[in-house]
């Protein structure tokens, strides 16, 4: 549908990636744990390795739940598709884009 306006109506997204420099926003969703009311949003360098992302960002957050076990073998997904994170690979190279959602369960 064409937007009906008086005058030109073009504005940049207020959440666009360039506002975060070399970083981006990544959502992390613990799918089968209802304690977390929603997925979490994090700002992370695109070049950050998965291992660092996991240790510096995901684990501290998930530990809000005292039952979280970082050594547990979770299944992972990216935007609803099965996903196999490689610890040494950067988030960008893993195909994780700005505001995309990484999920885990099991």
């Amino acid at each position: 549908m064409a937007l009906k306006t008086i005058g030109t109506y073009e504005f940049p997204s207020r959440s666009r990636q360039e506002l975060y420099g070399e970083d981006m926003l990544v959502h992390v969703w613990w799918k089968d744990n209802p304690m977390f009311c929603a997925a979490a949003t994090f700002r992370a360098p695109q070049a950050m390795s998965w291992a660092d992302f996991r240790a510096a960002i995901v684990d501290p957050w998930a530990s809000s739940d005292p039952d979280y076990d970082a050594s547990h073998d979770f299944s992972w997904g990216l935007d609803g598709q099965p996903f196999t994170p490689e610890p040494g690979t950067s988030l960008a190279d893993l195909g994780i884009g700005h505001k995309h959602t990484v999920s885990f369960w099991g």
Partner: peptide, 8 residues
């Protein structure tokens, strides 16, 4: 949001 009737 900017007004549709006065985007400026």
């Amino acid at each position: 949001y900017r007004p549709l009737w006065a985007p400026d």
